[in-house]
């Protein structure tokens, strides 16, 4: 096992190529669920879980059903063009499954996440990580690591942002036109600027 490679993937996903601040994936829930630190943490954890699970399941489906040479023959046309449709259906059913599981076994967490749980389906970070796994030709372990650490990067970003925003909303005095959403975007931009400092970081 190549631990240095896995570590480099993890570090890249959390800091250098953070899903929110460097790749712009998952901005909608990032903006929508970041008014309170508690809900932001719950959302981050749920997204991390779904991203890890989706990476694993979609890798298996892609490898064994969509591009398996044993089914279609070496170098013959395969079902790779169905990837987008197959992946989004897998993600939608996974989210549904997680929802049912939480409702039955962890009702307190289910209550806390509320409407944001079904919305994970349309989080572009989840579909994004699955598509990037295919694009980067990751193997099973690498895909799962990338999925989970990408989710942790999302968690870190939304936690930082929610903490800043909670304080800002209480004390802010800004031009009327910038009130609400625009000032939140400026805040996120400044955090993104800070995250650019990680771009020199490389591990071999």
């Amino acid at each position: 096992m190549d631990f240095a490679g896995l570590f480099s993937i993890a570090l890249g996903a959390i800091l250098v190529n953070n899903f929110i601040f460097a790749q712009f994936l998952g901005i909608c829930p990032f903006m929508g669920v970041s008014k309170k630190v508690d809900t932001a943490l719950g959302m981050g954890l749920a997204v991390t879980f779904v991203m890890g699970l989706a990476s694993a399941v979609c890798w298996l489906i892609n490898e064994f059903l969509l591009v398996n040479p044993a089914i279609y023959g070496e170098g013959k046309p395969n079902l790779a063009f169905m990837q987008t449709i197959a992946f989004i259906l897998v993600i939608a059913s996974l989210v549904q499954f997680v929802e049912m599981f939480l409702k039955k076994n962890v009702p307190s967490l289910y209550q806390a996440l509320g409407i944001y749980l079904p919305l994970i389906t349309t989080n572009c970070a989840v579909l994004g990580v699955v598509l990037l796994n295919v694009q980067n030709n990751y193997n099973f372990i690498e895909s799962v690591v990338y999925g989970i650490t990408g989710g942790l990067g999302f968690l870190l970003a939304i936690f930082l942002f929610a903490s800043v925003r909670e304080r800002l909303d209480a004390t802010m005095d800004c031009p009327k036109a910038f009130e609400g959403f625009p000032i939140a975007l400026v805040t996120a931009g400044l955090i993104a600027l800070a995250f650019m400092g990680f771009s020199g970081l490389k591990v071999f």
Partner: peptide
């Protein structure tokens, strides 16, 4: 990426105004 956030913020602020 920073510019993306800032330019969009300015556009939305302009629209609100």
């Amino acid at each position: 990426p920073v510019g993306g956030f800032l330019v969009l913020a300015a556009l939305i602020a302009f629209m609100q105004w």
